[in-house]
Structure formats: structure tokens, C-alpha cells
Design a binder for these strands. Structure first.
Lengths: 157, 157
DNA sequence: AAAATAACCTAGTATTTTAGTCAAGATTAA
DNA sequence: TTAATCTTGACTAAAATACTAGGTTATTTT
């Protein structure tokens, strides 16, 4: 388990989707604007998220991305694992024979620590994050600036 | 808070020090051998650890590195922070004005999540890690292969 | 005193990852 | 049909990671 800016972008982008679930699909263009990163980079991240079954894309006008699962069934760990393609952190390619045929100290230790970290992040669900006050506040402000409408009624008509 | 291989190397190296606290200083050469990474790279990591006051170096023959604090006073978070020089994860240089003068969603969310992660890793002390069974076992095997002696009596004479 | 050891320091380099760009195509609502 | 939007692939620039090579300084052993 690693923790890079890549994972951060992905988590924040998924937040965007979760917040606007009721108002229909969110375009990558909107996310790129609000997160201030390039569209194409986002596309790469979403390709990974789609492959992991976390989001589904809807083509055509009015399209965009939505969550493929309920927000409470997606954890921060899920997202990070999806985009942070696991590089092999071991020297021996996971064979555990890096030290004269024996696994070295690194292996077990990091595997255990990594698992603890994963379990921690796996407990934090997307649904919870949207409840945070700071998120709610920012979301409304973003919508106003992008001219988006977050109310369920107007979008589903 | 980021989590890279750099941090992993550092944590594992610190573990090595903690395990061999009783038997005197550990040379970077030994660590480089057991972790299978380059000596100079380790030196760079230890320069950061020393600057952070986590280790102290002892020059000359029989020298090496020891922990500067008790193993139970050093957390995994301490080590990672020491070597993973914090890059500014925000786009606006931490000014919080990336989105038309307002902080964007990313800021608060990641700051909070990052803090939670830090608190989690800060609770895990080096002293605890050495208690893990997998660690004890591997440590003995490593010593045998390096020809090191882990008993307190022989080393301090 | 000399030799050996090992920390400490500096600068440079190769590789990988991150982040972003560009362009051509596929799909679908209007 | 056509315009909006996703999808894919190839490519580039910048940064971080990992390593290399060359030293110096302090300490201990011989």
C-alpha cells in the first residue's frame, strides 16, 4: 500500500461523484476544473477506477461518470488500490528468497504494517466522507461556481 | 503524509537498530546487506534520521548507528516524516486560494484524512514492532548469516 | 604513529513514476 | 446527423527514487 498524489486525486474525484449522485453523472471536465488538474490525467485515473468496477461511464451528451456501487460500499482503500498499481515492494519479486533463500525482515514487517494500514483506510467509506462538514460546505460553493445544480428534482426531469 | 518505498526502507532500518540495541551500534553496511540496497542511499536516509534526532552515529571501528531515543518513544510516523520530505500536496502552495480565492474540496478532505493516518501510524511504536513474532524470527536468522552476535554479554565486553 | 574502520558529506547520474499533452476513434442523446 | 462525451494509445516533461563515485573526518586497533 502506497499513498501518493495519484491516490489523493482519485479519492477527491470519487468524492465529487458521491456528492452529486442525486443530480446525475459528473463529467471529467467538471472534475478537472474543480480539482485543477488536466483532463487527460483524470481520464487515466478513471480508466483504472472503471476497471476496478468502482465507477461506470455514460457516453453521449448529458453523460459523465457515476458510482458503480453505493457510496457506503466504497472505501478509501478501494480507490487507492485501484489507481496505485502495486509496484512490487520486495526485491525478490515476492518470492521471499532475497536473502540466501530466506525472506528478509522487510517482507513480513511491511506486509503486516501495510495490511494494518489497508484495514484502517478500508473502514473509511465514501459515504462517510461526504458527511464531513468541510466537504458539504465546499461542495455547495463549487457548484455555484460551475453553475451546476445539486438538487435532485431538476436533474432527473 | 505520503507512504513510499523510502519510508519503508527507513522503518525497516530503524527496526534493525531497535532489535540490536543491546548488542551495540549497527553499521550501515550490515543494513545495506540485509535490506539489499545501496550503502550510499542508506547514508542519505540516515542523514535525515539523524537530523530529526532519531538516531546518533558513532564513528570509527566498532561504530555504527544507535537509536537516539527509547524504541517506545519512536513511532512509525516519526520515521516516515523524517525521510519523506513533505512535498506540498496542494496546488496553491497551501494558501488555500486555488479556486477563485477559496480553498477547494481537496484541501480540507486530504488534510483531515492525512491527519487521521498520521495519528494511526504515530500510535505504532518501534518497540512494539520488535515484539512481532515474524520479526524476532527473521532477526535471528539474519544475525546468523551476517555473523553478528545478538547477545548483550559478548558485545559489551 | 600508522592503518583500518565507519560515519559523514557532496555531486552527479540512471531509472522510474508522476503528471500532463495530443490526437484519433467510439458511443450515444438530442 | 451531429454534437457531446467517453475511450484509447502514444508521446513528453518534470519530479522522485535509487544508485554511483568521490571524497573528509573521527575513532579505534595494531
Amino acid at each position: 500500500m502506497r499513498l501518493t498524489t495519484k491516490g489523493r486525486y482519485a479519492v477527491t474525484a470519487m468524492m465529487d461523484l458521491a456528492i452529486h449522485e442525486v443530480s446525475g453523472p459528473v463529467t471529467l471536465n467538471d472534475i478537472a476544473t474543480s480539482q485543477n488538474i488536466s483532463l487527460s490525467y483524470l481520464e487515466q485515473l478513471f480508466a483504472a477506477l472503471r476497471k476496478a468496477g468502482l465507477v461506470k461511464g455514460l457516453r453521449g451528451p448529458g453523460g459523465g461518470y457515476r458510482l458503480a456501487l453505493a457510496a457506503n460500499d466504497i472505501s478509501v482503500a478501494d480507490i487507492i488500490v485501484a489507481v496505485d498499481e502495486k509496484v512490487d515492494i520486495t526485491r525478490c519479486g515476492g518470492r521471499g528468497d532475497c536473502q540466501n533463500g530466506e525472506p528478509c525482515l522487510t517482507h513480513e514487517l511491511w506486509k503486516d504494517l501495510s495490511r494494518q494500514l489497508y484495514e484502517f483506510l478500508d473502514k473509511i467509506k465514501l459515504g462517510e466522507l461526504t458527511e464531513w462538514p468541510c466537504v458539504q460546505e465546499r461542495a455547495l460553493r463549487q457548484d455555484a461556481q460551475l453553475g451546476r445544480n445539486n438538487s435532485a428534482s431538476s436533474a432527473t426531469v
